[in-house]
Amino acid sequence: MTPAMDGFLGLGITSITRSIESASQWAVIDELGYLESSCPEFCDAVFRLFDQKQVIAVLRSQSTPFLDALRARNDVFLYDLDHPLLPIGCVIMASGLGKRFGSNKLMADFNGKPMIYRILSATDGALFAARIVVTRSREVEAFCRERKIPVLLHAMPYRNHTVLLGLSALLKEYPELAGCMFALGDQPLLTKETLEAMVITFSQYYQTASPIFRLAAIAEDDSIIPGNPILFGNRYFEELLTLPDNHGGNVLLKKYPDVVRYFPAGDPLELADADTPAELEQLKKAEFNR
């Protein structure tokens, strides 16, 4: 194929310039491939567009100096259509005793279904290569088994035991996991859409880094409010399996602060948990008022 230079120098650059000068914050480019590399002026125009606009662009899956430079930009998020998801596991932490709640809060009614149902629904489907519920509640165990959801009943006392038991069980069946998400059972407004976005984004970052993703909310003053779930790359599995007694993954968040990436929730309420009956009622009302 021979590029039509007049097309790049004429209509191509003119269209990009018009987009740069427009009032819109966004620009869409259907496809950039190897032919564009033959026209430095057109490539420079594309870089100017990326500097000044939010750009959604389709890139061919090949290596050229032009395409490689675009992919290497710090402000670019790359989504690989050929490999959108890595094999990610999910451990649902359901071992709390509900002392502040006064009863088994995971089986408490949340608008017609037990609260544990919400995280089971949010993690269902093909998003995760494997998942398991780790609990000390026979009611939760029975609820999961009725729905053929993998569950592990135990009597160990500490949070690190829940991490160890859950991750070990997943790795026994799926040793090739690239990462593992640890989700709580008492965040009833957490959505599948947020978890999907979190896993997809992690899968792309994983190609060039070893991140820890943590769900967060953005306050009105733009400060970060960290929350759960947390998604660890497999680089951290060995340390997760040997956490100190009565400690969870926060140990690694403090040890490796530079690799923690805060992923914004679609709604700050997704981070809210129900530690008391009053909080549960507030979240029920919040769902209806969305």
Rank of each mutant, 00 (worst) to 15 (best):
G12V: 01
T17C: 07
S24Q: 12
I29T: 01
G33V: 02
Y34W: 14
D44G: 09
V46I: 08
K53F: 05
Q54S: 15
I56D: 06
A57K: 04
A57T: 05
Q62M: 15
T64F: 06
F66S: 01
L67W: 05
A69E: 08
F77L: 14
P84E: 11
C90A: 11
A94R: 05
A94F: 03
G98C: 09
K105G: 03
L106Y: 10
A108L: 11
F110G: 03
G112P: 04
M115Q: 11
S121D: 15
A122I: 07
G125L: 05
E139T: 07
E139A: 13
A155K: 15
Y158N: 14
R159L: 15
R159F: 00
R159S: 14
N160W: 08
L164H: 14
L177M: 04
G185E: 03
P188V: 02
P188N: 03
P188Y: 06
E193S: 14
M198D: 06
I200C: 13
Q204E: 13
A209Y: 14
L215P: 09
A217F: 04
A219P: 08
D221N: 11
I225D: 00
G227V: 05
Y236W: 01
D245S: 12
G248T: 03
V260H: 04
L269M: 15
L269W: 13
Q282P: 00
K284P: 07
E287D: 12
F288C: 12
